[in-house]
Design a protein around this nucleic acid. Structure first.
Length: 429
RNA sequence: GUGGUCGUAGCUCAAUGGUAGAGCCCCAGAUUGUGAUUCUGGUUGUUGCGGGUUCGAAUCCCGUCGAUCACCCCA
């Protein structure tokens, strides 16, 4: 039994886990680049005040915080948006608007871990800064949809639940509810599907509202509500409206959202939200004490729930398998059949690697059978046998099992050509 | 932070208060120039940890740590 283990809520990434993680990263990055986003990164730690200033109680109660050796209050980042707002407000004049930025990195929240929830998780963040239009919101929803599709997660597997906080602020204005109750009210709406109706009714009556009236308003706030009109037209034109379901109970816990809000949910497994985000028009102004007013919107997708969803979605397996095959294998395994030929074999290993071929070999003397087994284990496509016949080298296709002799001087160019050929599937006897 | 369930080999699990086991995996050999199968052998445990009850504890009790579920909320 190991004496040491990972700290509660933290994960190891063994090679197979790391390969899956890299597949997720590559897919995120590829789709974001397809949308014209550029990548940035922020520090893993910030002053605790940065999070106190904006996020609201939900997040600050989960901060992974500590004092550094000089007594400064520091927190591991629970999310990246505050750092982004800090960075963007500091140097926004250096960048043309709108700024389409994305980021991939770890975040930390001190909460009770369970399935889909760990204390360190990796987020993909995509944000568009300096554009208040609903076209921006549509671009972000479209990106979220395309990311899901890129993973092989299809329309029957997920949905974007979308709303707009303004329908509720308008509602409160109509009902003459004092503004200081707005946060309380949104918190009630957030829980309305989970809490007991009588509790909800009581909380609403405390701020002068009735559950029946709120319920009726929610039902009426469907996809025909005028507040969604331009966003809907945009997404319909893209053919993506089918992925969106208007749901007025989506308000999101973070304090800074001001307009469109949405979350990505799976439809078949009852998992937690895969992604979430929305419009935060006032955040940059808040973070810069009013000197930079930059309306913005964005969303984040976490690797943990996404990973669970990928493992449970049959259609997502092809992409993973392809990626793992391309990333985990090597092109050629050099077999040293005769130790007298180790020197030229090593020279060939280095020459092949210099030519861009992925090569592995037995670093100590091994029986030929062992070396072929090792070639199989590392998923090599070709075996290159250095033996008594050198300077002829035997080249064996480990899939088709065909063998040919190649002159040592032609080996690099021959292998380079061979690995470009499409894979021939293994025949099933 | 609160409550429920659980914790045995690297993994999946067995062992009714009475000597801690199996399968898989891994390593070596059978097999000295070809991948599979098979066979043989081998490593692996302070039964999460610490106390307690008992002649005797993997088993019962308490605590603690961890996993998981619910609350909370969300990536």
């Amino acid at each position: 039994m190991a004496t040491f283990r990972t700290v509660k809520g933290f994960r190891d990434f063994f090679p197979e886990d790391c390969a899956l993680r890299n597949y997720i990263f590559d897919t995120w990055r590829q789709v974001a680049r397809r949308y014209g986003f550029v990548e940035y990164e922020a520090p893993l730690v910030e002053t605790t005040d940065l999070y106190r200033k904006k996020s609201g109680d939900e997040i600050t109660s989960q901060l992974f915080c500590f004092e550094d050796k000089a007594g400064r209050e520091i927190s591991l980042r629970p999310e990246v948006t505050p750092s982004l707002a800090r960075m963007a407000t500091t140097r926004q004049r250096d960048y043309k608007k709108p700024m389409k930025w994305f980021q991939i990195g770890s975040c930390f929240r001190y909460e009770e871990p369970q399935e889909g929830r760990s204390r360190e998780f990796i987020q993909f963040n995509a944000d568009i800064l300096g554009d208040a239009s609903s076209g921006t919101d549509a671009e972000l929803v479209a990106l979220a949809v395309d990311v899901m599709l890129a993973f092989g997660i299809k329309a029957e597997d997920f949905v974007i639940r979308l709303s707009n906080r303004q329908i509720w602020t308008q509602y409160l204005t109509e009902k003459a509810v004092p503004e200081e109750h707005a946060t309380t009210f949104l918190s009630i709406i957030d829980k309305i599907e989970r809490a007991k109706p009588e509790d909800t009714a009581e909380k609403l009556s405390n701020i002068g509202l009735s559950l029946e009236d709120v319920r009726a308003f929610m039902t009426a706030a469907d996809e025909n509500h005028p507040i969604f009109a331009t966003l809907r037209a945009d997404l319909e034109a893209r053919g993506l409206w089918q992925y969106v379901r208007i749901d007025a109970s989506i308000v999101r816990g973070l304090a800074y959202y001001t307009g469109t809000v949405f979350e990505v949910f799976d439809l078949k497994h009852g998992l937690r939200a895969v992604a979430g985000g929305g419009r935060y028009d006032k955040l940059c102004a808040l973070m810069s004490d009013g000197s930079v007013d930059m309306p913005s919107a964005g969303f984040a997708m976490g690797d943990v729930v996404l990973g669970i969803l990928l493992s449970k979605t049959p259609g997502a397996q092809f992409g993973i398998t392809d990626y793992l095959n391309s990333q985990m294998g090597v092109d050629a395994y050099v077999v040293v059949a005769d130790e007298a030929q180790r020197a030229p074999a090593l020279a060939a290993v280095q020459a092949l690697r210099a030519a861009g071929v992925r090569v592995d070999f037995a670093m100590t003397a091994q029986k030929v059978g062992k070396q072929f087994q090792a070639a199989e284990n590392v998923k090599a496509r070709f075996a290159l046998v250095f033996g008594a016949e050198y300077p002829q080298v035997q080249m064996k296709n480990l899939v088709s099992r065909e063998q040919t002799m190649v002159a040592a001087e032609d080996l690099a160019s021959t292998v380079v050509q061979a690995v470009k050929q499409p894979l021939v599937g293994k025949l099933i006897a």
